[in-house]
Design a protein around this nucleic acid. Structure first.
Lengths: 180, 180
DNA sequence: ACCTGAACACCGTTCAAGT
DNA sequence: ACCTGAACACCGTTCAAGT
């Protein structure tokens, strides 16, 4: 007799399931027990794949969402940064529930590769090391901060007819003009 | 015989005590029971002053830290915004433990008065309504985002000799040049 | 190696009771 | 009005045990 075989528990499946839970129900409803239910497993089974428990799970989630370096390529630097920034913003808005984690002290290196990739691109475009560092920091700060503001505004729904995408692009153009 | 009289429990004392606990030990260690201990009271007594419990307490903390409008005054608009931004940044860094709350969906109106005050100032300086809205959003986004990045960087301590204040000022000058 | 079941210390919150 | 004590449902995690 053939039994219904459950796919084996892996780190990837755990993280995907946790992200799905956060996107649907919010960070506050992510518990080890509920995550176990979603994976059709006892909560304690998760510890075999993530020995450091929930803290390690949250670190993995931050890394998954926040790691988004500028892809290699050619062309106008401002255009490349504009395209990349739009994609990163979409990703963060899609997984807005993890933003509080990204802003927390946990996994402090998670944004480093992303920031570094912007800095490298600015160096390539002829900026000094100091200018590139300031530019990357300015762009990343603007991106993270406006995503947080947009998410709050969206939740409030006070003025429903704000063109958030257009406003982001307008502010972005101003910043790109000064850093790139 | 004179008994040592404990000051009466008030909403203000509760919020101050909670902020002190977060600044010292982090958001994760703020529990109703520990807060009660700090106030020399049973945890359940807090509910008499904050009937909606911990959720209401967190909302109050967000309002306390995030409300920081540009003060009325005269003078060069860029100078006024530069001074205000530095003060707001210091305040956020001082209470960095509440940043995850500010970024969360809770109390979505908390940043509105602050953002509105920047928008009003830009209008006064002769910008159109749309320009003022974009400018205020850009400045607030930059400020919140870089505070989050700076806090993570500070926690990581990988490159200890970064001039974070100077970097913030440099990025700020670029933004002020385009919005004000 | 991989997962389970029972147990522990802790949490937010309710509710009846004290003063 | 203001605070307490006991209780409830839930949480992360440990550890010995099962297969």
């Amino acid at each position: 007799m053939i039994m219904s075989q459950r796919p084996p528990l892996t780190r990837e499946r755990i993280i995907e399931s946790a992200l799905h839970l956060i996107d649907g129900q919010g960070l506050g409803r992510l518990t080890m027990r509920r995550l176990g239910d979603a994976l059709e497993v006892e909560a304690m089974a998760i510890y075999h794949h993530l020995p450091h428990g929930k803290e390690q799970l949250l670190e993995q989630l931050i890394a998954y969402v926040a790691a988004h370096p500028v892809p290699p390529g050619a062309g106008d630097v401002r255009d490349r940064l504009r395209t990349w920034a739009g994609g990163y913003r979409d990703r963060l808005l899609q997984h807005i529930g993890v933003m509080p984690l990204i802003v927390t002290r946990r996994n402090p290196g998670a944004l480093m590769a992303t920031t570094q990739s912007v800095q490298d691109l600015l160096r390539t475009a002829g900026r000094t090391e100091a200018e590139a560092a300031i530019g990357a920091h300015t762009l990343l700060g603007y991106l993270l901060g406006t995503v947080a503001l947009d998410a709050r505004e969206q939740a409030a729904e006070t003025a429903p007819d704000v063109d958030r995408d257009g406003r982001f692009q307008a502010g972005l153009d101003g910043i790109l003009a000064t850093i790139a």
